[in-house]
């Protein structure tokens, strides 16, 4: 179930492989058929958002989402951006702001934001490894 040393679970390897693809968000979305990978992806999203934004002004999330959607050439001024901010804030102690976001849209946004971890220059490898390990521990507990 868990990993030893640098070995990951099958789900972890699946996600890391997807993150190494040319279009990480799209590759991550292909993991939808694996419940274990989906669970791990959600946990990876949670730990990444918390490490990046806990203790910061929530307005930083608004700016991050705008930057992300601009980078992806997606509309940054409307509902998609609001939903992205809502999903991020939901793991920072405000679950109520994301109640109206469908599971499908939530998954789509999570793929987009986790995929953004490797946007050049990307998080350092050591940081990604630490995030994945933490996510795997959380997934194993859930």
């Amino acid at each position: 179930m868990g990993q030893t040393g640098t070995l990951y679970t099958a789900a972890g390897r699946l996600l890391l492989d997807a993150l190494g693809e040319k279009s990480p968000a799209r590759s991550l979305s292909h993991c939808a058929g694996s419940p274990g990978a989906v669970r791990l992806l959600r946990e990876l999203f949670t730990v990444a958002v918390r490490r990046g934004f806990v203790g910061r002004d929530p307005r930083d999330i608004t700016a991050y989402v705008r930057d992300l959607l601009d980078y992806q050439s997606l509309p940054a001024g409307g509902e998609f951006a609001r939903q992205a901010e809502a999903v991020m804030r939901s793991v920072l102690g405000e679950p109520e702001v994301a109640y109206a976001v469908s599971d499908r849209r939530r998954f789509e946004l999570i793929c987009l934001m986790v995929g953004d971890l490797v946007r050049p220059p990307g998080v350092p490898t050591g940081e990604l490894v630490a995030l994945m390990r933490q996510a795997e521990r959380r997934a194993a507990r859930s």
Binding site: R59, T62, V65, G78, E79, R82, E85, A86, V97
Partner: peptide, 21 residues
């Protein structure tokens, strides 16, 4: 919707926030 309401307040305060739609 809470977030939409919050965004409208922030827009009124002069922030650039996603309020389209």
């Amino acid at each position: 919707p809470l977030l939409e309401a919050e965004m409208l307040v922030r827009e009124a305060l002069g922030e650039q926030v996603p309020v389209d739609g």
